[in-house]
């Protein structure tokens, strides 16, 4: 285990076996993550169903344009990440670097939008446990915002982890420790995680901003 140079660990016989194991491991991890978020979506679905009027009123309080822009930013970051993986596989170091930096920038932009949203909503009293009084009469509207803050918060934390990982790749590449295309699998793993987090948002956006509008 101690030797760093050969890419194959002792429990593997060939590099392709290790690559397949890494890939499968990441997909299994994502399956687990999908169930984690699935439970959040399930709760949202139940409350959308049993309190349609309150959910409608609550959804109207959200800033749709910011939500849409944020979604566009994340969708774009998925594409830059995919381009980074592609370039890494072909050993194009500069292209990989540019695409990775682009991904970090887009990720940070999304987080900035989200934090701005949260402050905005807090100012309007939409964070029920604290701040100005909650503006809506329906009690179940609070339920919506409780779930809103937990689900967007959980997503933002996942995205922050993704940003750190991609930033790590950038640093590794600048310092020459990310030899490409040999260690392309590292870029690929981070990319899969990143795109999974984007998919979570692809569902959060309509669930929070659209369906009960």
């Amino acid at each position: 285990m101690s030797d760093a140079l050969p890419a194959v660990h002792e429990q593997y016989q060939v590099a392709t076996q290790q690559l397949a194991a890494d890939r499968l491991g990441l997909w299994v991890f994502l399956a687990s993550e999908a169930m984690l978020f699935g439970a959040v979506f399930f709760s949202l679905a139940v409350y959308h169903y049993i309190h349609p009027a309150a959910m409608h009123a609550a959804t109207d309080q959200l800033d749709l344009s910011m939500g849409a822009v944020g979604t566009a930013v994340l969708l774009s970051s998925s594409t830059t990440m995919a381009l980074a993986v592609k370039a890494a596989g072909e050993g194009r170091r500069w292209e990989t670097l540019v695409a990775l930096i682009g991904t970090v920038v887009l990720g940070l932009a999304f987080e900035a939008i989200k934090v701005h949203d949260w402050f905005d909503e807090f100012g309007k009293g939409l964070y029920p446990p604290a701040g100005p009084p909650f503006p809506l009469p329906q009690p179940a509207a609070r339920l919506f915002f409780h779930l809103y803050f937990v689900s967007t918060g959980l997503h933002a934390v996942h995205l922050a982890v993704g940003i750190l990982l991609v930033a790590g790749l950038v640093i590794m590449q600048v310092s020459g420790r990310l030899t490409l295309p040999e260690r392309m699998v590292t870029v690929e793993m981070v990319g899969l995680y990143w795109q999974f987090v984007d998919i979570v948002w692809i569902f959060l956006y309509p669930t929070l901003y659209l369906v009960s509008r």
């Binding site: 409350y47 609070r142 409780h146």
Partner: peptide
């Protein structure tokens, strides 16, 4: 901890 009720019947939680 945060007071974000999800199952609170007063809020219509189930």
């Amino acid at each position: 901890v945060l007071g974000l009720g999800f199952f609170d019947p007063k809020l219509g939680g189930d």
